[in-house]
Amino acid sequence: MTSLGTTGTTPTRSTPGKPWWKTALGLVLTAFMLFPVYWMVNVSLTQTSDLRADPPHWFPWDPTFEGYTAVFQQQLPALGTSLLVGLGCVVLTVVIAAPAGYALALLNLRGGRTLNFLLLVAQMIPAVVMAMGFYAVYNSLGLLNTLGGLIIADSTVAVPFGVLLYTAFMSGIPRELLQAARVDGASAWRTFRSIVLPVSRNSTLTVSLFAFLWAWSDFIFASTLNRNGELIPITLGIYNYIGNNTTQWNAIMATAVVASVPAAILLVVAQRYVAAGVTAGAVKD
């Protein structure tokens, strides 16, 4: 983790000879900040009999994997569901956002300014309100408790973000590149497919990453639109777990650890895209 994590984040001004106390302070702050994460892992490995020990065990000297066994026995379908929903959300988001970004950034779409404005407003609508609207709509369409319905609802978080990100990136593509394609007789579709999309690969990565992470982490839509579904996502799996057996916190925390795995992978593999996504669309000057 350590060696991989650093690749994307070469500190701008970290040269040897900087005061060591800053590194020490940094380590302390990070440890403090990540303490809840450590605690989650610690509890997930604690023996059930030790869960109520006073004082609590600070380190799982005598670790148990009961919790993890329980996760893999009971929560595999939920993990699969979350994976499916996440991937579905990624595909839907990219299929809608990439062409829209192209139209907005490079094809001088009439009314583009209005559309941009609507997308910014769309991002401000609380999910709980969307959930109610979707509930009413799905209720009449028979889409409640279906994976498709959940994928669509989850994608509403990612689509406006995706369009804004693609638009931002694509408007930086040099016009000469497109001009050259046009001279060669390429249609708008062909230009999109063989020039714009490949050049925008990093935007696609960032958009996909966030679409997946948001769908994977979603609780509000899952708990409202998919509450009685046969296939529930992992977030709902944890939630039901908490409701059902409040004594088995090691199993709950084990599920939580497993549910955090995609986030951990993404952080290690794609940290720079994460930072990119957080900042994109938030600040511009």
């Binding site: 500190p11 001004r13 970290s14 800053k22 590194t23 940094g26 380590l27 990070t30």
Partner: peptide, 11 residues
């Protein structure tokens, strides 16, 4: 900027 600052910021 200090040693490990990039890594810690990522964490």
């Amino acid at each position: 900027g200090f040693r490990l600052s990039g890594l810690l910021r990522a964490m």
